[in-house]
Design a protein around this nucleic acid. Structure first.
Lengths: 235, 235
DNA sequence: TCCTGGCTCCCCATTTTTGGGGAGTAGCAA
DNA sequence: TTGCTACTCCCCAAAAATGGGGAGCCAGGA
């Protein structure tokens, strides 16, 4: 089975289970210990496909390691893929976590690609292996680009699956409504925003209300949050 | 000059001007009309390197086309690169905008890759050309992967430059502060959020205030907006 | 033509938020 | 031990936001 075969299969994937199978194929293709795709969607639900043992996944969730995993933390602040060696393992809990991970069969080497989608969607694609630093470096050097492309294909699929289920069409705000929301997002009070737009505060209120209703928001803050995370406005 | 030469040069780039030169080299290498990298950083500043005429850039900024450009709008909601033909050009202002863009020398075809970095950073990498649909499709088919890798290299550099100069370090919110902001972003009132967190509303207020100060925000809505667009919280 | 949508203005009372202040607990690290 | 940070609770008065209502003007599409 070649890499081309696998990516083709990835593009044909129809459900989450297919992604699971593909992580296994990739692991075998590269003859490494693990391939994992881990995804936090726009409403905070988590989902993963990968070759970690279920014991480890269960333990990870149970102990809420998400909150202290240096890989997650590092990737949230980075754009580039990270080799695990680059991360900050200096704190005690971080080292304990790493030790436990290795006991559960995670490789001592790892390379994780952060992927970001619209609406704050965030995902990680990880390759992990038991090997020496030198071997691992060579592996990364040789395969970094392919891994990145594959990671993106995975995320494409994950978003595709998500969109099938729920999508609220993004409402169209009028120019004044956009302005109003933008000023609010910038921290202006209603009075200030009205002043800036050279209209009465009462009028501004009408826009905010209109925008709120269009966005299906419960209050002004919610409306601004929705407008921002749906990309309707940019601050 | 080969593509390898150009990417190597990209990796050696030291300043924004270097990126400008590289867009020109890429344009010539692919023999297309334009290559543009456009970037909105975490504090809303805009920056671009590319081969568009300065006339067009000036006009674009002057008319505030950012707010109605379907390319921007489409990319904000998508993960995949978009061919301009897929976008929604049905509104009148959108069509007028396109017409004007073509008059100013922008190609009738275009392919734009959205790129997202940490802290809500967002960038676009665009290839544009004057050509038939078929020719363009072939070009994209042949070069999509390379373009994506190049786009990522560009963004890597841009983030590198940014970090050198100014960075308002992203504040670290405590778990409770994060919860508070998250509930507010979800549209909960303070009373509801406090209820949800099983604490008094007074306590919740302390968190909101603390988060506000850490985020340098003028009011709650502003704080939520900043938390969202800096990626501190995800709703 | 009529009708819709966008823009503008005004009133009311009620609820919510804000901006200060202070004070005690627990846990972790130097 | 002595800090520091996170978490929890409380008071008050002033400012801001909310949720209804109504009304007129203009432009563009059916």
């Amino acid at each position: 089975m070649t890499l081309e075969d696998i990516t083709e299969q990835l593009q044909r994937a129809r459900a989450l289970e297919d992604l699971q199978v593909i992580t296994e194929q990739l692991r075998d293709f590269y003859t490494i210990t693990h391939i994992v795709y881990h995804w936090v969607n726009s409403i905070g639900e988590r989902f993963g496909a990968g070759t970690y043992s279920t014991d480890w996944v269960d333990r990870y969730l149970e102990k809420d390691y998400l909150r202290m995993d240096p890989v997650i933390f590092g990737c949230l602040q980075r754009f580039n893929p990270v080799d695990w060696k680059q991360l900050d393992w200096s704190t005690k809990p971080a080292r304990a976590f790493l030790k436990e991970a290795i006991e559960f069969g995670v490789g001592n080497q790892g390379y994780t690609i952060p992927i970001r989608g619209p609406n704050g969607q965030f995902a990680l694609f990880t390759a992990s292996h038991h090997s020496s630093d030198l071997e691992w470096e060579a592996f990364i050097q040789a395969n970094a680009r392919d891994l990145m492309i594959i990671a993106h294909e995975f995320n494409k699929k994950a978003l595709e699956f998500e969109n099938k289920t729920e999508t609220m069409p993004v409402p169209t705000l009028s120019p004044r409504e956009l302005m109003a929301m933008t000023f609010l997002a910038k921290g202006f009070s209603r009075a200030q925003a009205a002043d800036e737009l050279q209209i009465s505060e009462h009028t501004l209120r009408v826009y905010i209300e209109a925008a709120r209703h269009k966005l299906g928001a419960l209050n002004t803050t919610h409306a601004v949050a929705r407008a921002l995370s749906s990309g309707v406005i940019v601050v």
